[in-house]
Amino acid sequence: MARQAVADKRQRRERGSISVDEIINGAFDVAAEVSVDGLSMPLLAKHLDVGVTSIYWYFRKKDDLLNAMTDRALGQYDFATPFVEGQDWRESLRAHARKMRQTFRDNPILCDLILIRGTFGREATLAAFQKLEKAIATLVEAGLSAEDAFDTYSSISVHTQGVAVLERLNDKSTDAESPRHSGMSVVDPETMPLIAQLTQKGHRIGAADDINFEYGLNCILDHASRLIDAG
Rank of each mutant, 00 (worst) to 15 (best):
A5C: 07
K9T: 11
R10N: 13
E14C: 09
E14I: 06
G16C: 05
V20Y: 02
I23P: 02
A27R: 05
F28P: 11
D29E: 12
V30N: 01
A32N: 08
M41H: 10
L44V: 04
A45G: 09
A45N: 05
G51A: 05
V52R: 15
S54Y: 04
W57A: 13
K61D: 10
D64L: 04
L65M: 01
L66G: 05
L66K: 15
L66E: 12
T70Q: 07
D71F: 02
G75L: 01
Q76C: 15
D78R: 13
E85V: 10
D88G: 14
W89V: 06
R90S: 12
R90A: 10
R94Y: 03
R94P: 02
K99E: 04
M100G: 05
D106A: 13
F120S: 04
E123V: 15
K131V: 15
A135H: 07
I136A: 03
L139Q: 10
V140A: 06
A146E: 06
F150K: 10
S155Q: 11
T160N: 00
V163E: 12
A164S: 10
D171R: 13
K172G: 05
K172Y: 13
D175I: 07
P179M: 02
R180A: 08
H181F: 10
S182H: 02
P193D: 11
L198C: 11
R204P: 06
D210P: 04
I211L: 13
I211F: 09
I211M: 07
I220S: 05
H223N: 05
A224E: 04
I228P: 00
D229A: 00
A230L: 09
G231P: 10
